[in-house]
Amino acid sequence: MHLQTATAQLEHAIEAGDEETAPKLAEFLLDLGAEPTHVTAALSRAMARLGKQFQRLDIFVPDLLVAADAFEAAMHVIEPALHACEAGRQRKGTVVIGVVEGDIHTLGKNLVRVMLAADGFQVHDLGRDVKAARFAQAARESKADIIAMSALMTTTMGRMKDVIDVLVSEGRRDNHRVIVGGAPVTQQFADEIGADGCAQDASRAVALANRLLTSDRPVGGET
């Protein structure tokens, strides 16, 4: 099979949420001599297309969840090759993501996680009902460039500020960019709590994360 055909088939397998075929095609592409970054680019293209389709409600949450499984299965296969090559080691940045304490609305956070990973970020998912100290600790341990928090309720969104307060009290606020999102979160709220940005949906969250990492303030890691 031709490289181009296999690449197209891989993209198709991701879009169809085919968890079995996607890793096989990824492996096949590597065997054909494709660069690992060629494979990740194909995966990102497929996920970005799905993100756009979801925005228009042409596809729905289950479709994105199974596509994410297929994406992760394919990534698993190419991970070693990716680490072995210089270009592949250059991840865009590390993100720690979670839903704040007291809130169990996970769907939006999951979609943001998937789209960030598909765009080349290293993402650590802390799940839901995550305490402020846990966000701060995970960000420190993984030297995260970005802390991404989700809250779907006005009663829990205040917890986002708690995380920022912890970072400030530990003198580590400038080590991480903080992004926030979820239905009740507005730019005004993000400004009020001192976050670095907010986004209305997963595709825009990816654009925001990229924008923040290319702006001048250094982030990520050491105190």
């Binding site: 968890e19 479709d63 969840l65 199974v66 996970t106 769907l107």
Partner: peptide, 11 residues
Amino acid sequence: GLDSLLSDMVR
């Protein structure tokens, strides 16, 4: 768990 249920619907 909603995520598990939604995945089950497909798989």
